[in-house]
Every structure is written in C-alpha cells, then in structure tokens.
Amino acid sequence: MARLAMVIDTTLCVGCADCVVACKTENDVPEGFCRDWITEQVAGAFPSARLEIRSERCNHCDHPPCVGCCPTGASHVHQPGAVVLVDKQKCIGCKACIASCPYDARFVHPQGHVDKCTFCVHRVEHGQLPACVSVCPTRCMHFGDLDDPESGVARLLRSRRHHELLPAAGTGPRVIYLT
C-alpha cells in the first residue's frame, strides 16, 4: 500500500512562498486563508544561531487524530496513497478535527466545510506532482511513496539527516524535513 510523503530540503528552501501561491491558485483557496505556509525558526545564539525555513502544510499523518475524531466520516484516509482528505459533502463543520490537529493545519472554509492540503491528489492521480512541488524554484521539495524503497523520498531519507514536526505528538507525520 502506497504512503505518499513530502520531503523538503530546508538547506535549499529560501522561503520565497511560490509553493503558497501555487497552492492558492491550483486549489482556489479563498482570500485570507492558506493550505500551506512558510515558517522560519531561529534557534541558538550568535555566532552559532541557526535559521531553518520550512514550507509547512497538513502532515497527512500515519495516525491522523483528525480522522478518528470526525463524527461523520468526512475526514478520511484516501487510498491509494494514504492521503488524509475531507469529504465536503459529509463535513458538518463541527471543528473537532481542527481541535484535534496538533499542527493547526485545518481551517473552516467560508463555504462551511473544513479545508486543508490534499497533497493535490487530483493532480497526483493523473501522474502529476502537487502544485507546490512542481513550482519550487530551488527544487527543495520532493514527493513520492515512502513504502517504495527506490522512490526519491525514500532514498533521501536513507541518506540525509531529517526531522519531522512534533514527533512527541505521536501522529507519524509524512511531511519530513531534511537538515
């Protein structure tokens, strides 16, 4: 069973936000909202302070708390690819999934349903990359199947140091950052 994942090289990301603009354009994200965003984290003290720039989004977790807490089954794991999606025909807007996400990756769409990154599954199912990955000018974003040992993302994770966000939350995020 495929487990689609995104691997982002923070040593290449310059925080240009092309990925954010591409996502908003591709997915018609309403004004004032975003499905992906840029985070800058400065850690340490001069002269050894370190800046990490990350393109963040829904982590499409292996153990998604948003799916378990959904009372209508609107939040679900889409196969193939194990992508976490929201079925807007079933979503009642109770916001339980929003409260359950440790990454605060979801929001209420002005139309009433909950919205978030879909890994551009509509593109991926036609053999294309997610919009954010396809436009990245530094080629810092990689997308593929974690369960395929020959995929680009699997090879990168074998060869490079990496981390995920909030590992202690136990959700098993599948957006992983190379350092």
């Binding site: 965003w37 985070t39 984290q41 929003i98």
Partner: peptide
C-alpha cells in the same frame, strides 16, 4: 533563542 515566525494567518486558527 528559539523564535518561530509564520506566514499563516488563517481566521479562527491564528494566532
């Protein structure tokens, strides 16, 4: 220092 800044400002979510 551990400082995080984000471009995300989703209504109802941030800050």
């Amino acid at each position: 220092m551990d400082e995080i800044t984000s471009t995300r400002h989703n209504p109802g979510i941030d800050p």
